[in-house]
Design a protein around this nucleic acid. Structure first.
Lengths: 147, 147
DNA sequence: GCCATATTGACAGCATGCTGATTATCTGTA
DNA sequence: TACAGATAATCAGCATGCTGTCAATATGGC
């Protein structure tokens, strides 16, 4: 008999759903959604990427990126600038307001994470991160790489 | 600095994305999507539930259930029957074909799960399930309940 | 330089997941 | 019985994530 309640796929979907909802509660006052927050977070690490580069780094579908940027542009957090070497492409840049939002938004994410992992110890959270990185596709993640 | 690559929410979203894609590869030959499979899986455990009951058991939004059932009904896997005591409600029943699909579809799910957890040991998979159940909302899950 | 091929971003179309509103029906209380 | 409030399902509207297609532009081989 197939018991979906114990299935990793089902549990991942529900865990993700809960993470999404908790983050959304924290950031909706800033009129953002979790994926929009995620895209900003990649720009905080490196500004001026093209849509394809953002798509690869964030593992977000390239057709989804377009709409995300449309909405972030409308909110005045990012802007499309023509790419100096490639007339097909845009470079996506944070606006001043987009840069200023890093600190308050990261604080929102910290609060959401605290609620999410309320039932887990710090060590368990580390273990969970390691295993999720493996699930994501890396063959194996070691604390001390051995090969 | 906020590093989204190490964020549990981000990793959950990517892990879920990968689980979704792997399951979809296995079941798309049967013209199903992972959420449709999930709904069937709850009916395999208990047939004849109402949409609200399915929504609660599967933690699927009640407005999403309607469309899922529409599509499963069109595929001939489930059917809406009037509820004998409540004229507002339907009881959702598996068709013969819906029942027969349990075995092949569960096999698809087993193969997808094997690919997903390829990099983890059996013990790690158990740990992961335990931690995801905690993330889902249960305060704490013990192998040997202590309180 | 020229052309086949690849790449960038846009769009249409579909399924999912949510909010909020609506309709039909049920239930508990006066 | 009558009525207020709760409940089951639907619908409209929006954002996300995917497939597939297309136009504009780059690139590499000749």
């Amino acid at each position: 008999m197939y018991d979906i309640e114990k299935s990793i796929g089902f549990l991942l979907s529900k865990g993700y759903q809960r993470a999404w909802a908790l983050l959304r509660e924290e950031i909706e006052v800033h009129d953002l959604t979790p994926p929009q927050f995620g895209l900003l977070a990649f720009l905080w690490l490196q500004d001026g990427l093209t849509q394809v580069e953002l798509s690869e780094k964030g593992q977000i579908d390239r057709t989804t990126i377009g709409g995300l940027i449309d909405r972030l542009e409308k909110s005045g957090l990012v802007e499309r600038r023509p790419h100096p070497q490639d007339r097909r492409a845009y470079k996506i840049h944070l606006t001043e307001r987009g840069k200023e939002m890093e600190s308050p938004l990261a604080e929102c994410a910290r609060r959401a994470l605290a609620k999410l992992t309320d039932g887990l110890s710090g060590q368990e959270v580390g273990e969970l991160i390691r295993m999720l990185q493996i699930l994501r596709g890396e063959r194996k993640v070691y604390d001390h790489p051995s090969c």
